[in-house]
């Protein structure tokens, strides 16, 4: 499986340019889409799931033009939108059954089995007769992923899936996605939570202002910020000054004032100890630099 995104732009009628000449190639496996709110992630996702039409450019799925073969693409899709709710009058089972039927499972026996199994997988079998308003947030998310997976999709697109989940739920959710990504499927995970990507994705892209700021593996992103993270202790006075100069990723109050981690090529006039960066550091560093257009954009051209 491969999704090729070529020169994709989206302008809304109000003149807002949500996407600006985006080029990306996504292969099987999990792909992380990282970016701050308003970077264009949702727009890109909605174009990928055929809900929106791009203004320019195209999306090819295994060579198929997505805007011409929507039905075929839709058959391959599993989609979990960010704000997923479902009809409050249907039970968990019924809703999943609805999804299954819509994706073409005609035989009711097969479907019943599949739905049951899926509920089991996401741990909702016990709650199969409960209505939507009786489900917890985590359960709803799990039902959301269940409906996205029910049709054995080749492309799974999940938008901010872990927002609002407790840590245990989040871990379970990531594990579930990882298991599925072992098959020949593409999972696109859009998030602004860095940890979601660091733990699961082999490839990722960073979106900022409708443009791709980075495309590559999380490791590449991390390594690009090597030696740019500094740890230091500052007093209140220094804290005010330094925060005006550099982005700060961690702030821990200590007796002397604050123990902080600063993202900077060179933190002078302050002094600090270099720290091994993680993805979150890299993300902050990158976004800061990209915003200042100080560093060259690394774009993984079609290789």
């Amino acid at each position: 499986m491969r999704i090729e995104i070529q020169n994709l732009s989206k302008r809304y009628p109000n003149g807002n340019k949500a996407l600006d000449s985006v080029n990306l190639t996504i292969d099987s496996g999990m792909f992380g889409l990282l970016g701050p709110n308003g970077a264009g992630k949702s727009t890109l996702m909605r174009i990928l799931v055929t809900l929106l039409e791009p203004s320019e450019g195209m999306v090819l799925v295994d060579g198929l033009d997505a805007s011409k073969h929507r039905q075929e693409i839709r058959k391959m899709l599993g989609y979990l939108p960010q704000d997923f709710r479902f009809f409050s009058n249907l039970t968990t089972f019924e809703f999943l059954d609805y999804g299954a039927r819509l994706s073409g499972m005609k035989d009711s026996k097969t479907r019943k089995n599949a739905v049951g199994k899926m509920l089991e997988t996401v741990g909702l079998y016990e709650a199969r007769d409960r209505k939507a308003n009786k489900l917890s947030g985590g359960m709803k998310r799990r039902l959301g992923i269940a409906q996205a997976l029910i049709n054995d999709p080749k492309i799974i697109i999940v938008d901010e899936p872990t927002t609002g989940l407790d840590p245990e739920e989040r871990i379970r959710f990531r594990n579930l996605l990882s298991t599925i990504s072992a098959n020949d499927v593409i999972i696109i995970l859009s998030t602004h939570i860095v940890a979601d990507i660091s733990s699961t994705c082999r490839n990722m892209a960073l979106l900022s202002n409708g443009k791709v700021a980075f495309n590559g593996s999380p490791e590449d992103l991390v390594s690009s910020s090597n030696g740019k993270i500094w740890k230091m202790t500052v007093n209140n006075d220094e804290m005010d000054r330094i925060s005006a100069l550099f982005p700060i990723t961690t702030t821990i109050p200590v007796d002397e004032g604050w123990e902080i981690e600063v993202v900077a090529d060179d933190p002078s006039p302050f002094k600090g100890l270099p720290v091994e960066p993680n993805l979150e550091h890299a993300y902050v560093y990158f976004m800061d630099k990209y915003a200042q257009k100080n560093i060259e954009v690394i774009i993984d051209q079609e290789d």
């Binding site: 055929t50 809900l51 039905q71 839709r74 989609y79 979990l80 960010q82 709710r85 479902f86 999804g99």
Partner: peptide, 14 residues
Amino acid sequence: KLDTTEVIYTRSMS
């Protein structure tokens, strides 16, 4: 209003 529809809309029916 609800993204529920998006879930439905991305299914393959016409």
